[in-house]
């Protein structure tokens, strides 16, 4: 029971990340009709916003280690610590949450610039061309990040106060061994809140309603004198912010490197396809579903019966769903269909 509970939590946590990335992908596909293979790179760039903030906050006074003679080795003490003591330390400790302040405008800007300068020229082009150009863009972005930050993962710590594990077993009447990292619980809550905010924005604001109307019938909305293209550009920016924030918050879970986006990209597309192209609730549902299935398939008990199942489960589920429900779990008629 304890093991099953922990795997459900793992699945929800993993699913949260999948759902956030897939949500952005679906949003862009639903509004602009663009299959954006650079979306994973946006997630990665969000993570590197956190790395950048941490690097800025830890700019250090270097004191040469005289015992090392053949090259210059330094003992580094961050200026913030030197100048502000414990307050400085606390600011550095909170660098990941603080990164959100930088990530929101930066990712919005990146999204808008990307859409205006490149993506918009491919709205009416075939999906294959969109995939090629956005995949190329993803490679350019990741190589740029690699040239600045190197290929090695760069660890980012959660604030000390939430860096340990919560004795969650006691809360649910399970064994003492059932613990779960605080930061992962926070990530799960963050995912749910962000998904809730995006849905609220689309359903309960006039702006969101116009966007949804544009998704359903672009021409009619334009005939009403609404500049739907500008709104779609903003939606692209919002999708970039969602993916970027997902990246920022994921850094304490997974030390980011330049390849982080590619690691998530394929999985996220499977999530979108399983959920149903263009369906936002479908993307969220499929994200959590596949996350949980992936976690369960990794259990020794399951692997003993189906060896290697953990490595193929997601694709297996995708095949089964597409055979039985070709439009995915919640796909709409007419999306990506001639």
């Amino acid at each position: 029971m304890d093991a099953i509970f922990l795997q459900i939590l793992n699945g929800l946590d993993k699913g949260g990340a999948y759902a956030l990335i897939a949500l952005g992908l679906t949003l862009v596909f639903g509004t602009l009709g663009v299959v954006n293979f650079a979306h994973g790179a946006i997630f990665m760039m969000g993570a590197f916003c956190a790395v950048t903030v941490e690097k800025i906050l830890t700019l250090s006074m270097r004191v040469r280690d005289e015992s090392v003679t053949f090259f210059e080795a330094y003992k580094e003490t961050p200026y913030l610590e030197v100048w502000f003591g414990d307050t400085g330390k606390a600011i550095i400790d909170w660098s990941v949450p603080l990164s959100i302040i930088l990530a929101i405008p930066v990712m919005l800007l990146i999204g808008i610039v990307m859409e205006r300068s490149l993506i918009r020229y491919f709205y009416k082009r075939p999906h294959a061309e969109q995939i090629l150009v956005t995949f190329g863009l993803a490679i350019v972005l990741q190589e740029l990040v690699k040239s600045f930050f190197g290929a090695n993962p760069l660890p980012q710590g959660a604030p000390d106060i939430v860096s340990g594990s919560a004795a969650i077993g006691a809360v649910f009447g399970l064994g003492e061994a059932v613990v779960y990292p605080w930061w992962r619980l926070i990530y799960l809550a963050f995912s749910l809140v962000t998904i809730g905010l995006v849905f609220s924005f689309l359903h309960f604001t006039t702006y969101g309603m116009v966007v949804r109307a544009g998704m359903a019938d672009r021409e009619t909305v334009e005939l009403l004198g609404i500049n739907i293209e500008r709104r779609f550009t903003i939606v692209f920016g919002i999708a970039a912010v969602v993916a970027g924030l997902a990246g920022v918050m994921y850094t304490p879970v997974l030390p980011p490197d330049y390849h982080l986006g590619m690691d998530f990209l394929v999985l996220s597309f499977v999530v979108v396809v399983v959920g149903g192209m263009g369906s936002l609730p479908g993307a969220v549902l499929a994200g959590f579903l596949l996350g949980i299935l992936q976690s369960f398939s990794s259990m020794t008990e399951v692997k003993d019966i189906f060896p290697g199942i953990d490595q193929i489960i997601i694709y297996l589920v995708a095949v089964v769903i597409l055979l039985t429900r070709p439009r995915g779990l919640m796909g709409r008629r007419g999306v990506m269909e001639s």
């Binding site: 304890d2 795997q7 939590l9 699945g11 953990d310």
Partner: peptide, 8 residues
Amino acid sequence: SQYITPVL
């Protein structure tokens, strides 16, 4: 995570 939790 799915491989680490069973260790607990």
